[in-house]
Design a protein around this nucleic acid. Sequence first.
DNA 1: CGATACCATAGTAATCTGGTCGGGTATCAG
DNA 2: CTGATACCCGACCAGATTACTATGGTATCG
Lengths: 130, 130
Amino acid sequence: MRLSTRGKYGLYAMHYLAQHEHEGPQSLSRIASVGIPKQYLEQLLGSLRRNGLIHSVRGANGGYQIAKPSEEITVLDILDAMEGPLALSDCIADDRCCAKATKCRVRHTWERLTVNINRELASVSLKDML
Amino acid sequence: MRLSTRGKYGLYAMHYLAQHEHEGPQSLSRIASVGIPKQYLEQLLGSLRRNGLIHSVRGANGGYQIAKPSEEITVLDILDAMEGPLALSDCIADDRCCAKATKCRVRHTWERLTVNINRELASVSLKDML
DNA sequence: CGATACCATAGTAATCTGGTCGGGTATCAG
DNA sequence: CTGATACCCGACCAGATTACTATGGTATCG
């Protein structure tokens, strides 16, 4: 169970944007300078934007900014945006999968663990990372 | 960030074996009856065995048994065996990756989260799942 | 109007996933 | 001893995902 580079890059990018929270829009090139391939990062920022975590300014002198104060953005928000929600294969995401769902102890266990892990991820904000 | 079927099947299989802890070796076919493709499961049981979570008995009337009492086997043990350890891409697993490692706040954050998530996974034993 | 910089889609090589297949080897029953 | 049972192991394979790259478009500033 490992985090993809999408998640890693997402965290790096958001960390950079939080550092420059009040300095106006930061261009793609600036953000990429922390060590992320530019064109790939462009896609990732698109995901972050569509999930409401950042907003963008087009045109010359444009760039990206975080959409909320850094203490209101959590690691969970970022990872969910970059990799989709934490789930046990398709089973937990889809209620119908396990016919004997209510009797499925494994599933029940995994649901509890998922809640706890998500709480853990939600307990760290961007601001905490600075 | 989702768990693969390897992890799911691993949990199912270990749960089955824990249920039949003192009933002698359980054959591959028996275990597979919970809904896992037989030949695929055979591979997965190999991983569990090489990680010391189960042991096998060859020959007629052979099969698999858990190698330790069910209260000594945790969900973390099983997921680590099936999917490898939780890591942030290759960065956390490999100390040399991040040149400015000590200054890398993102990495530090992720290390703390990893420890907490692992603790969470280690807090549930097979016995708890029964 | 043209340089800057975001937006969107498509392609792509490498890797991973979720299997299947075939041929071993160990053990027990008769 | 022999055959049936059942684990062991490596190879193979189609399809999905990952991590990019490429190209062309659109908005905005000066």
